[in-house]
Structure formats: structure tokens, C-alpha cells
Design a protein around this nucleic acid. Structure first.
Lengths: 96, 96
DNA sequence: TTGACAGGCAAGTAGTGACTTGCCTATTAT
DNA sequence: ATAATAGGCAAGTCACTACTTGCCTGTCAA
């Protein structure tokens, strides 16, 4: 799994992105509880941890360790590739 | 499978979107041969047909039947939801 | 220093989706 | 009419991935 779109496919990972959109820089446990509360997603901590790994591997989030806490920061720049790949190409055609 | 992102996850379907970006309104057989030629993707006709079904089910393409031919037309408007969901939300925060 | 907290590692399971094979229908050309 | 073309339907296989369970490591507070 090294593909941006495969990373976005899992609903759980979409929800994680939503959660980090609400408040950036959360820890694993914070993300877990917020998913359970606001998104009705009750997954084990490990499941969410694995999702975070995937999201990080495609560059959608970066992490910063501080003591025993690990904070997760959203990075939406890879998403712009989607626009470039299909959306903007049509615009170029229309512009011609 | 009724999710836009799951539909985008399969590399074959990404390639199909690319192919239709190059030239819109192609038939199944045209898409097949173009995938094999330009994209080194040799799948059976049925496989690609199934991919087209998925893409149509999430609104990424529409079809028009004409005699024994069926033409496939790209529709990228669902992709804008991605921008809305995560990209534009950040912009709003920055604008504040 | 010991227990609680935050997180990581590894192996196993189950379900799903991508793909194939085989056969069928409809349209067009000869 | 019949053969070729364009496409559809259905069932089966296989691999991958999402998720779990169980245990381990590191950090902080009492």
C-alpha cells in the first residue's frame, strides 16, 4: 500500500482526516475517542494506529514525538495531485 | 462498493480515467486497447467492463448507448467533493 | 520504584474486491 | 441467414487488507 487513493479508500481513514481537520495535532488516544464520539467508529487502538501509518506513508500526515505523546498533523498537499490529474486537465482543454 | 474513494483506489480505474481524459466518449473495446497500448495494462474485457460499472455507480462517468456501441463519458464533478471535504476547509481556517 | 498511561510489534482471521472463465444477447455487415 | 462484432451475466478463485488479540517498550507520576 503506497498509493494515495488506496489510502483514501478506507472509510476509517477518511474519518481520521475529518477528525484532524477539526483539530490538528492530536494524539492516537485523542483520535480514538473522538472517532468513537463524533463518528460512531469504535475501532481498537491498534486498528487506528495502522490507519495512521498508512496515512503517513502517503504523506497525508506527519508526526511529532514529544515524550510519551505522539502528535499527528494533517498535510493535504498530496490531495492537490488529484485536482492536477483530472480536474485541471479538463480546464486546460476548455481554455484552449 | 458505493464510495467515491474506493472507486478511485484501483489503479486500473485510475488508468481508465486517464484514458478518458485523453479522449472522451470511447467504447469498451477502445478503452481496452488504449489501456494495453499506452498504459501497459492487459486486462480482460470483462475486468474493464466491471471497472466501468464501478466508475459509473459513483458518478464518475456516464454512458450513452448507440446501436451496438456504448460510449463512456467522463464526469469529474464528484472529484470536487474531495476538495470541498479537506482542502477548502483548511483554506477557510486560514482565511479567518 | 512501581503502577498507570501512551504507544509499538507481530501473527492470525475473515471478508471483500479484482480478475478470470464460460456462456449468452443484441446489433451490424456480407 | 449467418458470421462477426460489441457487450452483458454469473460463478469461481485468489490475494490483499482491515481488524483483532496478545504481548512488549518507553515515559511519567505517586
Amino acid at each position: 500500500m503506497a498509493d494515495l487513493f488506496e489510502a483514501l479508500a478506507a472509510p476509517a481513514r477518511q474519518a481520521i482526516l475529518d477528525v484532524l481537520c477539526e483539530r490538528d495535532g492530536q494524539t492516537l488516544f485523542e483520535i480514538c475517542s473522538r472517532l468513537a464520539m463524533s463518528h460512531n467508529l469504535t475501532l481498537t487502538r491498534q486498528a487506528i494506529s495502522q490507519h495512521l501509518e498508512v496515512l503517513e506513508s502517503v504523506g497525508l500526515l506527519s508526526t511529532r514525538r514529544e515524550g510519551r505523546y505522539k502528535f499527528h498533523y494533517l498535510d493535504t498537499t498530496p490531495l492537490e495531485a488529484i485536482v492536477e490529474r483530472w480536474l485541471s486537465r479538463n480546464k486546460k482543454k476548455k481554455e484552449k
